[in-house]
Design a protein around this nucleic acid. Sequence first.
DNA 1: ATGGTAGAAACTCTA
Length: 256
Amino acid sequence: MKLATWNVNSLKVRLPQVLDWVSKHRPDVLCLQETKLEDANFPAAAIREAGYHALFSGQKTYNGVAILTRAAGSDAVTSIPGFDDPQKRTLAATIDGVRIVCIYVPNGESVESEKYQYKLRWFAALRAWLENELKRFPRLALLGDFNIAPENRDVHDPAAWEGKVLFSRPERDAFNELLAAGLRDSFRLFAQPEHSFTWWDYRMNAFRRKMGLRIDHVLLSTELARSCTACTIDVEPRNAERPSDHAPVVAELETT
DNA sequence: ATGGTAGAAACTCTA
């Protein structure tokens, strides 16, 4: 089973790239973030023609998440229960017996921002919810744009980023608390190249200069982690014309 | 020096 996540930064703009990518890689599950589409405008027909089912929870201009699947999903949930949030950042469903949770964590803007406090509140609610979900669904995968780089090696210049949003101590602590709830970072189950990143700012030629962060993640419950055989970042789409600023992350599970 | 790019939308906000 192949699971993937990709922040597309507008599905309207990136739809041809997404269709091309799924035809080439044929993931069983592709979680998308920043679709920036109201549900009425979701390109369900084009995705269906590519052989995929789609679940989606979107809004105009900002945020929006979707899950594309080869097999039909069930029991979809579009929010963190008990956390009142008008922003469309969460989508969960069961596919082939695996509980898939697709998230777009708030960016936070800066550590001084009100949006940073919202980010930490949001992430605390996510952890509380997932502690319960992991009991209900031992086979659970949490994929998405976490907007958190967990470790020094996930940042091109850790000294410059120390204490900044995406790499501040409270954010990294929150990420580690999520792991402590019973999740593994699938990328770190394997030896990886140095300078492995998933996001590069559009500005300052950051991609060409390898100035990136690893902020998109595939976390697996301990049971699923045991069957994980690979996790890779596909930087190829970042080289395309009009790319997303994020690259897809792909995890492979041994089918049982 | 606090820049710059991209997307959606609408003359600004978010990332």
